[in-house]
Design a protein around this nucleic acid. Structure first.
Length: 357
DNA sequence: AAGGCGTGGAG
DNA sequence: TCTCCAAGCCT
């Protein structure tokens, strides 16, 4: 016998009263702007990581108008270290769109909300429910985990059929009343008792209704994503300093890895061959000074950093190709801390030039 | 429909 | 040290 939506909502709302989080920075006077910024920052990012970014961001861009009028580079700088930088670009574009197309106020329908860049179905639902108390469901990782266990949903989240099933479930079980508290509580339950590992089912209000718990299979749900070995990309980076003590940096194209951020001029091997080591060309007078190893979601980066009097241009030997860039510029050393730099590049540069922070 | 897109915390 | 993956969206 499946739990009814009424009973489900009642239990979750009771949980909200006793265990719900009510003091997060974006929860005091939760305007659409505040909820939106927090929700975008929280995409695939933990609360603890987000909080300091959120607070600094709000001090710098207190209103959507201020955000829309800010240079994109400033927004990217505030996003430095958070990752998934297209979020910052979309956030900026979205602010401008809300200003010009919606007179500076977020729309109130789900369809209009979802039409905005960087706002998908779940983020739209979160803004509408948490900031406007409209009865829209959400489906973030926490809600997915709770539902996958309570209803023993088979399959991995990445499969569209599974995602659709979970959307059907959250739509059916999200109440029309008190939707804000319900949605917040579902996320809080998923983040606390119904955690990924070692869930505390004895304390969960849904324990007696939870199919996974009843069958002793909470550890099996949600199903894990199939693991794949990710490739390693080799790269050569060049640290070039001119007589005025400036360093040459390139701005990466808007899309792709590290989109819009400043990094070192870089040669890459399109195909990953782990055994092939890049070879220094003596005529270039290169000096290997450091090595950068960094792991992304879908590949490892293994880069050698060289100092060179001049960065090689065009097609290099052995199939090494220069990475596409949108812009290049000499930067003063003392201005590096104002730029949006990828984390491993920032660590290298700050270490090399002995910059603090 | 499945893969691209960051980083750091947890175990 | 290594694996897994977190308040997803876009293409």
């Amino acid at each position: 016998m499946l739990i009814t939506p009424e009973s489900f909502a009642a239990k979750i709302l009771a949980f909200y009263q006793t265990h719900g989080r009510k003091d997060l920075p974006w929860q005091k006077n939760p305007t659409a702007y505040r909820v939106w910024v927090s929700e975008v920052m929280l995409q695939q990012t933990q609360v603890k990581t987000v909080i300091p970014y959120y607070q600094k961001f709000m001090r710098s861009f207190p209103t959507i108008k201020a955000l829309a009028n800010a240079p994109l580079d400033d927004v990217l700088h505030h996003w430095q270290g958070l990752g998934y930088y297209s979020r910052a670009r979309n956030l900026h574009q979205c602010a401008q769109k809300v200003m010009t197309e919606f007179n500076g106020r977020f729309p109130k329908t789900l369809a209009q909300m979802e039409s905005l860049p960087g706002i998908g179905r779940s983020t739209a639902g979160a803004i509408l429910s948490l900031a406007m108390n409209r009865p829209t469901p959400i489906l973030d990782g926490n809600v997915k985990r709770v539902l996958a266990r309570v209803f023993m949903v088979d399959g991995w989240y990445g499969q569209s059929a599974v995602n659709k099933h979970l959307w059907d479930l959250t739509s059916r079980y999200t109440p029309q009343e008190n939707t804000a508290n319900f949605n917040q509580a579902m996320m809080d339950l998923g983040a606390s008792f119904c955690s990924r590992s070692k869930p505390q089912c004895e304390q969960c209000p849904l324990a007696i209704d939870c199919l996974a718990y009843i069958h002793g299979k909470t550890a099996e749900y949600p199903h894990k994503k199939p693991k794949k070995t990710i490739p390693t990309k080799q790269a050569k980076m060049y640290l070039q300093i001119n007589p005025r003590q400036q360093v040459l940096l390139v701005k990466r194209p808007p899309t792709g890895i590290w989109g819009g951020l400043w990094t070192l001029p870089q040669f890459s091997q399109p195909s990953s061959i782990d055994s092939v080591k890049p070879q220094s060309d003596d005529t270039m007078c290169e000096n290997l000074i450091d090595e950068i190893k960094h792991t992304f979601t879908h590949f490892h980066l293994h880069a050698q950093v060289y100092t060179a009097p001049k960065v090689p241009t065009g097609q290099s030997a052995n199939g090494w190709t220069i990475e596409e860039t949108s812009q290049q510029k000499w930067h003063n050393i003392n201005e590096l801390k104002r730029l949006a730099l990828p984390t491993p590049i920032k660590k290298f540069l700050f270490r090399y030039f002995q910059i603090n922070e």
